[in-house]
Design a protein around this nucleic acid. Structure first.
Length: 579
RNA sequence: UGGGUCAUGGUGUAAUGGUAACACUACAGGUUUUGGUUCUGUCAUUCUGGGUUCGAAUCCCGGUGACCCAACCA
């Protein structure tokens, strides 16, 4: 139990590369020894488990090194943004167990950004371009071919100034003009080929209402927001690596415009690998298609990788955090194995889940020597891993439901549950001896199984301390409740749907749902309406963690009612060979 | 000869020029009133070719492969 100082120092924890940078920066006194991060979602959809990886780093690093992490809604594009998503994002982060310093919005800085844009026009570093988006795209060149300068690039400053004001007047049609930064149309970095800073949308914004008609682009927003808020480490995913020089350039221009020292107190961007999970699709765009096409039943469908879906499926926030902690942060484009998530969930749920009896595929077991009409109340432990969680009562009687798979009329050596002539333990009850079964004359299906019980073998008494190979769970027919149990499989039949869909799109020239269908698992949900569960389950609330003994982890679906109990399978118990 | 980034068991991650390790998976066994948990063990790794060095997963050069960049998305 006691660890010596040596053991403690030996166990020195290895930091991921971003933590190491933060630690070094702090030690070197950069940014005045301050640490500030931010998690910057766009409120245009629901957070998924990939976001959880970013959240764990942004918030986790602040926690670990004594800094603060703000939640900043990246709301620069009012076309798809909504309050609904703002609320959902906050709820999901809280569910994961993280705490932000402040809730901020990129739109809080629209005035500052506008003034900055005006300053850049005056400095000759920005101009209004009146070409169509097609023309601009064409002039941009390709990664291997330099771009060409816009004919509007060197128009008079006064003209750009006037047109920029026009862009925000509401009188300019979207697409007619944009504000561009004058950088380098021949740059190897595509983002330097006169990036668009502002575009006309003529659309109200969830926060600023009708104040603006022209809105800033991500690249012209993010760095300045970070700077204004005092972010020291701006952490994002790998696809933003090419944006970093632009991020730095705009921040430098901004500081310069404000007459501030360039070298000091600037936010810096760092990038890590985003989460890829096998048999899982993560992109927001494609998840939207799944909901729109009715492949799934909304964003919180338990098959979805969204945090609300995962929560409804029965995963605990702790298991998500444990999983993310295990996969780590690097710059390698990894494809993580689902099995690791499942193992993290089992590890956590094993400690958390209340054990209950549920018979999913029932067949009747009759104890022929048990008195008819007799009922016993037996005590079962809620969680053997946590005795302090106590016990609850389950009724026992002459006729029970057991799992059809737990009986075989003719068994091989490896089968050690129930077959004629064999002793089997009914968990928390008695030891019984199977005497035979009755089959349906037409179908041949087993209809009833018979056994006798040993009255001296009641659980908890001396007579129970006998070695019996094989323990099964059961439910008293007259004392249990019908239930609906929803079982899930992966939504995808291929390990890497991201690549498979992309490939299919290119090969067959189709997009969206048509490219997804070939890889959608038709059996991703199966609903079992013939299951039985303990009455005790009436005391459980939505989202409660359960283990159906010997079967798997389940939770109470939020749509479950006492009249219509509904459970979701989270993940099965690990299975040894046999069966 | 576009630019950027990367490559360690089946999967992911560590080793910060000094004995290649950890977790998951798979497999074998002990314990067990869950074929769960727990415990023990087994298999298996530095993309490739050169170079520097007493010593290279680590540094350098070439090759191969993968990912990102050509939204008025973020």
């Amino acid at each position: 139990m006691c660890t010596t100082p040596e053991e403690v120092t030996e166990k020195k924890e290895t930091l991921n590369f971003i933590e190491q940078i933060v630690k070094d920066d702090l030690a070197a006194g950069k940014n005045g020894g301050r640490l500030q991060t931010r998690f910057p979602p766009e409120p245009n959809g629901y957070l998924h488990i990939g976001h959880a990886k970013a959240i764990a780093l942004d918030f986790g690093i602040a926690e670990k090194f004594g800094g603060v992490c703000n939640l900043r809604m990246d709301d620069t594009n009012p076309q798809k943004e909504d309050h609904e998503f703002v609320e959902a994002i906050e709820r999901d982060i809280e569910w994961l167990g993280y705490h932000w310093g402040k809730v901020l919005y990129a739109s809080d800085y629209f005035e500052d950004l506008w003034e900055f844009a005006v300053a850049l026009i005056k400095q000759g570093r920005a101009y209004v371009d009146e070409q169509t988006s097609e023309q601009i795209a064409q002039q941009k060149g390709t990664p291997t071919r330099p771009g060409q300068e816009s004919p509007y690039r060197n128009r008079p400053i006064e003209e750009s100034l006037r047109l920029f004001e026009e862009m925000n007047s509401g009188r300019i049609e979207p697409g007619k003009m944009v504000l561009r930064a004058k950088i380098d149309m021949a740059s190897d970095n595509m983002h330097f080929r006169d990036p668009i800073m502002y575009r006309v949308l003529n659309m109200p914004h969830i926060r600023t209402g009708n104040r603006w008609n022209a809105y800033p682009m991500y690249d012209f927003t993010h760095g300045q927001c970070d700077y204004l808020e005092g972010v020291t480490h701006s952490i994002c995913t790998l696809e933003f690596v090419p944006h970093r020089p632009l991020y730095d350039l705009f921040v430098d221009w901004y500081k310069e415009t404000r007459g501030e020292d360039l070298s000091d107190n600037r936010p810096r961007q760092f990038e890590f690998n985003k989460l890829n999970l096998n048999y899982t699709l993560m992109s927001k765009r494609n998840l939207l298609i799944l909901t729109q096409e009715g492949v799934v039943d909304g964003w919180d469908d338990p098959r979805m990788p969204t945090l609300c879906g995962i929560r409804r499926r029965g995963y605990s926030p702790e298991s998500i955090r444990k999983f993310i902690d295990k996969i780590g942060y690097t710059v390698f484009d990894a494809l993580n194995d689902m099995k690791l998530l499942e193992s993290a969930a089992r590890a956590d749920l094993n400690e958390r889940a209340t054990r209950v009896s549920a018979v999913l595929n029932p067949v009747k077991l009759i104890i022929t020597n048990y008195p008819e009409g007799q009922v016993e109340e037996l005590e079962v432990v809620n969680n053997p891993e946590r005795p302090e969680e106590g016990t609850h009562i389950i009724e026992f009687s002459r006729e029970l439901w057991i799992e059809r798979e737990d009986f075989k009329e003719e068994a091989d050596k490896k089968f050690f549950r129930m077959y004629p002539g064999k002793e089997t333990r009914l968990k928390s009850a008695y030891i019984v001896n199977c005497t035979g079964c009755k089959r349906n004359e037409e179908t041949g299906e087993v209809e009833e199984i018979y056994c006798t019980y040993d009255p001296t073998s009641k659980a908890g008494t001396e007579g129970a301390n006998r070695k019996v190979k094989g323990t099964i769970h059961w439910l008293s027919c007259d004392h249990c409740l019908p239930a609906e149990v929803r079982n899930y499989e992966c939504l995808w039949t291929c390990e890497n749907p991201r690549d498979a869909i992309k490939e299919y799109e290119e090969e067959h020239g189709v997009r969206g749902i048509e490219a997804m269908r070939p890889f959608i698992n038709p059996n991703s949900i199966s609903i079992n309406k013939r299951a039985f569960v303990e009455k005790f389950l009436l005391t459980r609330k939505a989202f409660d963690y359960l283990q159906f003994t010997r079967t798997g982890y389940y939770n109470v679906d939020p749509d479950s009612t006492p009249e219509h109990l509904i459970f979701n399978s989270t993940v099965s118990l690990k299975e040894d060979k046999g069966k």
